[in-house]
Nucleic acid binder design. Sequence first.
DNA 1: ATGACACACGTTATAGCATAACGCAATTGA
DNA 2: TCAATTGCGTTATGCTATAACGTGTGTCAT
Lengths: 136, 136
Amino acid sequence: MTAAPGLTKNQSLVFDVLSRSDAPLSAYTILDKLRDHGFRAPLQVYRALDKLLERGMVHRLESLNAFVACAHQEKECCGGHGHGTVAFAICESCGHVVEFHEHAVDHRLDDWARERKFKPAKTTIEIRGLCEQCAA
Amino acid sequence: MTAAPGLTKNQSLVFDVLSRSDAPLSAYTILDKLRDHGFRAPLQVYRALDKLLERGMVHRLESLNAFVACAHQEKECCGGHGHGTVAFAICESCGHVVEFHEHAVDHRLDDWARERKFKPAKTTIEIRGLCEQCAA
DNA sequence: ATGACACACGTTATAGCATAACGCAATTGA
DNA sequence: TCAATTGCGTTATGCTATAACGTGTGTCAT
Ligand SMILES: [Zn+2]
Ligand SMILES: [Zn+2]
Ligand SMILES: [Zn+2]
Ligand SMILES: [Zn+2]
């Protein structure tokens, strides 16, 4: 029970499932895992996910249509959950995901945007490939 | 009629629709635009898209579940359609998409992967926000 | 030619991901 | 107390993508 502050019951349940998983989960997989806890419909999951995403406690992997718990501790370099752009390395064999920051990347993309007067709202960076274990 | 070499009829039709569009299109939108040309089922679109993606003539925007024609001319800096990682700036207001390379970003991500012995297969970089026009 | 193979195509059905719209209950804050 | 907000549960629907089947066509070695 990783009780978290300010979360409703459903939000806690969803966050818990994601925290325990060592691979990204789709909303429907989460739903299945929570049927015993009274979950019956996708919206219960999506509503919880929306709030968790708002708080930065969960990230969405766009290339997978799946979700992961944020891997950061509360007090990470860039301000913990208030972090800026985050990137993911996703193993297509074992499903393992590594979340990381690359300031140089962020800054370069920021520069690109500033030069073109583009106002970034959210940036997605996802590398799919094989992790060290699976690259054999 | 942007006739392209080595493409089947369906592939040409799909590529043409994407080339003419100034915003990304979903597979189902493409389907609707091609009903007059005999398209009846999603698979006709997806099969054509698969081949176009293989050739690098079309890109998939993961955060939008949509597709765009490659913006490069045949002989771009990184080798035209054989290009490496490409990035996109997507305006959430007008839908316009700019495709670009940032070598510094590519290299930094490559370094990250090499340090961790992660073997990248495909990298997604998408910046969502507001273009200069829409940022008003 | 004939057969074997690869590949595109068309169709139907199904699977997987996400939201609209309704109404109710609990909470908060004038 | 009243109104506003937020979360919740349910049903229905919409959007995205693929499975599985069969057909036709071209290539190429036999
Ligand atoms: Zn994070
Ligand atoms: Zn792996
Ligand atoms: Zn391109
Ligand atoms: Zn715009």
